[in-house]
């Protein structure tokens, strides 16, 4: 079964969007806004007049406060929306907005799925915002992280001879090789040619990786988005190289592994911190099986000449397989 998780517009979501410097583990925004959106939908469904038998089940399970997930999710065929979701189209004419989308390919997911995943992600975002094009799509490949203190941080990875992504012992993912990235990039180039995406971008690329990547692209990235806590320490060579190649260096605050499997399992699970979509240890009426995050997409629509973020949110898709 396919699970589509959504945050809705997190700009109106309150505390979940505000990260404090003290716990700036940067996937907080996604996970806490998912939790917040689930909780809001749960409570709104439990306040609504109950006409489902599931509530009896939850009572029997000794969990009087939690409504059945069936009350606030929506299943269509083999797809479950968590929560049930309908698009919130933008209110002003399209040209008023700058729409940026960031697509996170996740570790340990075969790269050959990306072509379909990419189209699926873009489709979801376009439908959500009620539009047919986006201004900038940034892709985040798994396993790359930008280390501002080490100018050559991305050179050592090239030693890895394996093609596809591989897990190291400590659970970190090694970056994939340039060829795999380029294969994924071709899909994006296709969307660019169809005028669905105006500009493309990459994330966390250092000089080395950029110089290997650029010659193989048909549509060059116009943006390299880097995560730097103190952006005043961006290595000079990268600044110069980006300037020379006409690539804009943008800042962000996401982490590469934006939705680890364990985190997702916890959010959806039957435990104290979960919402009971998945069953746990014989408890609850939740779904059974192994959950595997596939990809995450973040979208942001900014009213250009006012600098106001009107809509921002995430979709995450996971596969649920019978164990």
């Amino acid at each position: 079964m396919k699970l589509i998780l959504s945050t809705s517009n997190i700009m109106s979501g309150g505390p979940s969007v505000i990260r404090r410097p003290t716990f700036e583990k940067s996937n907080t925004e996604l996970t806490s806004s998912l939790r917040a959106n689930f909780a809001a939908n749960q409570s709104s469904s439990s306040n609504a007049p109950t006409h489902h038998s599931h509530s009896l089940d939850s009572t029997l399970n000794g969990d009087c406060t939690r409504p059945s997930f069936r009350d606030w999710t929506a299943q269509e065929g083999d797809t479950l929306q968590i929560p049930a979701h309908a698009p919130s189209p933008l209110t002003e004419p399209r040209e008023a907005y700058d729409i940026t989308v960031k697509l996170f390919y996740l570790p340990n997911i075969p790269a050959n799925r990306r072509c379909i995943q990419t189209r699926e992600a873009i489709d979801l975002v376009l439908r959500e915002l009620g539009t047919t094009s986006i201004d900038l799509l940034i892709v985040s490949f798994p396993g790359i992280s930008f280390d501002a203190d080490d100018e050559d941080s991305d050179s050592e990875f090239e030693q890895s001879p394996s093609s596809g992504p591989a897990s190291t012992e400590d659970g970190e993912t090694a970056p994939e090789d340039i060829e795999t990235m380029i294969t994924s990039w071709r899909t994006l180039e296709g969307l660019h040619e169809q005028k669905i995406i105006a500009k493309l971008g990459v994330a966390e690329f250092g000089c080395q990786r950029l110089s290997k990547f650029l010659p193989k692209t048909r549509v060059r990235p116009s943006v390299d988005q880097i995560n730097v806590r103190d952006c005043c320490v961006v290595p000079k060579p990268l600044i110069l190289y980006a300037k020379k190649e006409g690539i804009e260096l943008l800042t962000h605050n996401d982490c590469t592994n934006v939705l680890p499997r364990g985190t997702l399992r916890e959010i959806l699970g039957a435990g104290e911190k979960g919402v009971g979509v998945l069953s746990g240890e014989g408890r609850g009426e939740g779904l059974k099986g192994d959950v595997e995050p596939q990809w995450v997409v973040k979208y942001t629509a900014v009213v250009k000449d006012r600098g106001v973020v009107e809509s921002k949110g995430y979709f995450a898709v996971a596969e649920l397989r019978e164990a």
Binding site: R19, V234, T251, N253, T300
Partner: peptide
């Protein structure tokens, strides 16, 4: 947090 939602160059 607002700035993190915007495309701001380095």
């Amino acid at each position: 947090s607002y700035l993190n939602s915007m495309n701001v160059d380095v």
